[in-house]
């Protein structure tokens, strides 16, 4: 078994009377694609938001890369090496691809307070970043407004994969895409794994989970009810775990 990058133990989180997470235990391994599946409202997104610093758990422990962490902001999580591709992608449509790739991580040149943007350097690096992905490459000087859904997804993933992140979290990365674009994005996700990133995937598409993931966790009404290696399970078993037809 490969080494664990993230271990979650006994995580609890309530919003008022709603217990969104109840004693969640799960883990994900370095260099693997891990999927979280479950019905709407099962707590998948809440769990992920705890990992990427949006929410803070009421109790429980998150161990990342051997250290117990408690992120108070997405910024902190990012510094630790956890990048998130949000469902709405968090791209600014009126900015160009390279500006989005470097948003809030702009390269500058100059001395002391007189820092100006290194526009050329960022464009060049952006070219390298998107060409390394070799999938569906949009021109880095184009505004995001002009890109297709798949191209936007590629840019968002590219941004998350850059900057030496250890874990890339993706919330429904292909929900809004057509068949061909879904296939390209899946290739992209696999290439992240090959590059040594761990990937945490939320998906409603069981076929996709079976195709991509190494490990899958099933959530039901705030609990993490089961974990399976995808090689040793079937889509049918996963579905019955989600609905509760099969006890874990």
């Amino acid at each position: 078994m490969t080494s664990e990058l993230v271990t979650v133990r006994g995580l609890n989180l309530s919003f008022g009377n709603v217990r969104a997470l109840r004693d969640v235990d799960m883990s994900l391994a370095e260099g693997e694609i891990t999927a979280i599946v479950g019905d709407n409202g099962a707590g998948k997104s809440t769990l992920v938001r705890c990992l990427c610093g949006v929410h803070r758990a009421d109790s429980g422990e998150i161990v990342f890369d051997g250290r117990t962490v408690s992120f108070s902001s997405p910024e902190e999580a990012r510094h630790a090496g956890i990048e998130t591709v949000h469902q709405n992608l968090a791209l600014v449509e009126d900015l160009t691809v390279w500006q989005n790739l470097f948003l809030n991580r702009e390269l500058t040149k100059g001395f002391g307070p007189l820092q100006v943007l290194d526009r050329k350097g960022m464009r060049r690096q952006a070219e390298e970043m998107v060409s390394a992905l070799a999938v569906n490459v949009p021109a880095v000087g184009a505004r995001v407004r002009r890109l297709s859904g798949g191209q936007r997804q590629a840019v968002a993933i590219c941004r998350a994969a850059g900057f030496s992140s250890r874990l890339v979290i993706m919330d429904e990365p292909t929900a809004a895409l057509g068949v061909q674009e879904t296939e390209r994005v899946e290739t992209l996700i696999r290439s992240l794994r090959e590059d040594g990133h761990a990937v945490l995937l939320i998906s409603h598409n069981f076929d996709q989970v079976m195709r991509l993931a190494d490990q899958v966790w099933v959530m039901r009404s705030g609990r993490c009810v089961a974990g399976r290696r995808t090689a040793e399970t079937s889509a049918a078993e996963i579905v019955s775990l989600i609905t509760g037809a099969l006890a874990a």
Binding site: N88, L89, A90, V92, E93, L95, L103, N104
Partner: peptide, 18 residues
């Protein structure tokens, strides 16, 4: 850049830590 990002999409700007 952050001014334009905040105006273009406050949500996206916040998500990237601006």
């Amino acid at each position: 850049t952050h001014v334009l990002a905040a105006g273009g999409s406050a949500e996206a700007a916040t998500a990237t830590g601006i």
